[in-house]
Simulated assay, not measured.
Amino acid sequence: MKFILGKKIEMAQIWQGDKVAAVTKVEAGPCVIAQIKGKTKDGYEAMQIGFGAKKEKNIKKPQIGHMKKISTQAIASAIGGKGSVSGGKKNLKYLREFRIDNINKDLKVGDIINVSTFALNDVINVSGISKGKGFQGVVKRFKLSGAPATHGNKDQLRMTGSIGSSGPAHVFKNRRMPGRMGGDKKTISNLKIINIDAPNNLLYIKGAVPGIKGGLLLITGDGELKVEKISPESNARENKKAGNQASKDLAKNQVGKDRFANLAQEIKDKISQPRIIKSINILEEKNNLDLVSMIAKVINKEIEYSQLKNHLMEFYNFDEAKAGELDKELKEKVFIEVSDYLQ
């Protein structure tokens, strides 16, 4: 079985000779193999693949740890340059699993799946989440005919009608009644690929597929899964680069801690957290000045915390708007951990 993840772009038309076909344009892959499951360890055989780009701050830590096994080069190839992959960040937006029998032993974590695994006229199945339509009545939701429009009927055209007899004295399960419609997983079978744009990772699928524009699609078909291998040399080079960046970040954080060496230990531990040191470095580069001495004076209460804005205007010649902006950023990103001590 072959498969890929994709994103629904739009519907369009393609001419085939003198006939026109309605097609769905899908951005399919590239996807990276994130995990291979086996019967020995997991109890079943399956393959997990990742697709799309996502900011690391929006990814939970367990998922970040799960994706550490994938090389940075493979992530970069999968997301096609979207999102940040610097410093070893792994920003896959979607992870989905496909059950497979007898997984090819040549497939490895980090291999890339792209549209080249499919061919023209392949018959495929496409799964996605259907459009949500909110709370709907039985006429729209279940195509019931409604009540007669004449012969004494009034305001009953789209009513449900009887929902049971008085004998059992209760409503049976699965009775078709008004309720939430759409937003369900749907699979459309036996669709055909009628065009492939490999350079742009696009599949043109005849007919409609479930979901909204930009919705995730799971595409499966019969045949051999073809993958693109990432060279070990590239992996080693990228991992070395990521390791060097991590070492630089660590050294930078250590320098930041040393700059607050004269503060009390409890306050020093709070103000020397990596994210706060990073914020200070960014603000110093942005405003082209040394903020550490001023921050230390504020913490030692040589400068009043409430008068920080006025201090910036007086000693750094900032205008009121710029001083107010820096004052807000310092209080939100730097002094947040020691605000109780300062007030």
Score class of each variant (00 low, 15 high):
1 M>T: 12
5 L>S: 05
5 L>Y: 06
6 G>I: 07
8 K>C: 07
8 K>R: 11
14 I>P: 07
16 Q>T: 00
23 V>L: 01
23 V>Q: 00
30 P>R: 08
30 P>Q: 12
31 C>V: 03
37 K>A: 05
39 K>R: 06
39 K>C: 05
43 G>M: 02
44 Y>M: 08
44 Y>A: 09
46 A>T: 01
48 Q>H: 02
49 I>L: 08
50 G>K: 02
53 A>Q: 07
55 K>W: 09
57 K>P: 11
65 G>W: 12
66 H>W: 11
66 H>G: 12
68 K>M: 09
69 K>W: 03
75 I>Y: 10
76 A>V: 09
81 G>P: 14
86 S>R: 06
87 G>C: 10
89 K>W: 07
91 N>W: 06
94 Y>L: 10
95 L>F: 08
102 N>K: 13
104 N>W: 04
106 D>S: 15
108 K>G: 06
108 K>M: 12
112 I>K: 08
113 I>G: 03
114 N>C: 13
116 S>L: 15
117 T>H: 08
122 D>Q: 02
124 I>T: 01
125 N>K: 08
127 S>P: 10
127 S>G: 08
135 F>S: 00
139 V>F: 13
141 R>N: 05
141 R>W: 09
141 R>M: 11
141 R>E: 06
143 K>H: 15
144 L>T: 14
150 T>M: 12
153 N>P: 07
154 K>H: 11
157 L>W: 03
158 R>L: 14
159 M>L: 09
160 T>K: 04
163 I>V: 03
164 G>E: 00
167 G>T: 02
168 P>M: 00
169 A>K: 02
170 H>W: 00
172 F>L: 11
177 M>D: 00
178 P>Q: 02
184 D>G: 14
187 T>I: 08
188 I>M: 06
189 S>T: 03
191 L>D: 00
195 N>T: 01
196 I>W: 06
200 N>M: 10
200 N>V: 07
201 N>W: 06
202 L>P: 07
205 I>F: 01
206 K>T: 00
211 G>S: 01
212 I>V: 12
214 G>R: 03
216 L>R: 04
221 G>D: 06
222 D>L: 14
224 E>R: 15
224 E>Q: 15
226 K>T: 15
230 I>P: 14
235 N>F: 07
236 A>F: 13
239 N>F: 12
241 K>F: 09
243 G>L: 14
244 N>T: 01
247 S>V: 06
248 K>T: 08
250 L>C: 02
251 A>K: 08
254 Q>W: 03
257 K>H: 05
258 D>R: 07
260 F>V: 05
260 F>G: 05
261 A>K: 12
261 A>W: 05
268 K>C: 09
269 D>M: 13
271 I>V: 15
275 R>W: 12
275 R>N: 15
277 I>T: 01
282 I>H: 10
282 I>E: 14
284 E>A: 07
285 E>A: 12
286 K>Y: 02
288 N>P: 04
288 N>W: 03
289 L>R: 00
291 L>E: 00
292 V>I: 12
294 M>H: 01
296 A>V: 13
297 K>T: 01
310 N>S: 13
311 H>P: 08
313 M>W: 03
319 D>I: 10
320 E>D: 14
321 A>D: 15
324 G>F: 11
329 E>N: 13
329 E>T: 07
330 L>H: 05
331 K>G: 05
334 V>M: 08
334 V>T: 05
336 I>D: 15
340 D>W: 04
341 Y>L: 14
